[in-house]
């Protein structure tokens, strides 16, 4: 994506996860807080319980997409950011939940274009019942996730270093500022 286009790019933020499964709610919660804080023109924010097929029609309408999700692997509270590439092999055996990489593969196969895509995750520590309430560990990860998203929607941000769709990842260190480990 060239810089000129970045200036007028359309960005879609998708927070997803179950609102009643503890820290799994962090994706939708961060999306809600972004929405409440306000986002620049050209940036849309949505929350989803699960990722479903019709989202493909939204993805192909945007230049950059940022998925926000909880992670189960890693150190609780750790925030990671990585770029995503289409992967048809990430296909679910069921229809009620799709992997973001599968959705990108739908975009590629059906529409011949794929938005530049990032996945920002926070590792949760508890996934038992709670209604839109995070553990303190996950709550502490909200601000770093927000910082990542703000960098990803800033056309001049260093997130462009992650623009190639690889599994390169960045983590949030203990210093409080996002740190890429590429």
């Amino acid at each position: 994506m060239d810089r000129a286009r970045m200036g007028s790019r359309k960005v879609l933020i998708i927070g997803y996860g179950s609102p009643i499964r503890g820290d799994d709610a962090i994706g939708p919660l961060v999306a809600d807080r972004l929405q409440a804080d306000g986002v620049p023109a050209g940036v849309a924010v949505i929350s989803r319980h699960i990722l479903t097929a019709e989202l493909v029609a939204d993805l192909v309408e945007h230049d950059r997409v940022v998925f926000l999700d909880a992670a189960v692997e890693g150190t609780p509270g750790e925030v990671r950011c990585r770029s995503l590439a289409p992967d048809a092999s990430a296909m679910s055996t069921m229809a009620h939940f799709l992997d973001p990489r599968e959705l990108l593969a739908w975009c590629e196969t059906l529409y011949g274009k794929v938005p530049e895509t990032f996945l920002v995750t926070a590792c949760g520590s508890a996934f038992d019942y709670s209604n839109y309430v995070l553990t303190p560990t996950a709550e502490a990860a909200v601000q770093p996730m927000l910082e990542w998203v703000r960098r990803l929607i800033d056309p001049n941000g260093c997130a462009s270093r992650l623009s190639k769709p690889t599994d390169e990842a960045a983590t949030h260190g203990e210093t409080g500022s996002p740190t890429m480990i590429i």
Binding site: T52, A53, E54, V56, A57, D58, W106, L110
Partner: peptide, 8 residues
Amino acid sequence: KDGIRLRQ
């Protein structure tokens, strides 16, 4: 594409 659009 029709399937995606109808769901949407």
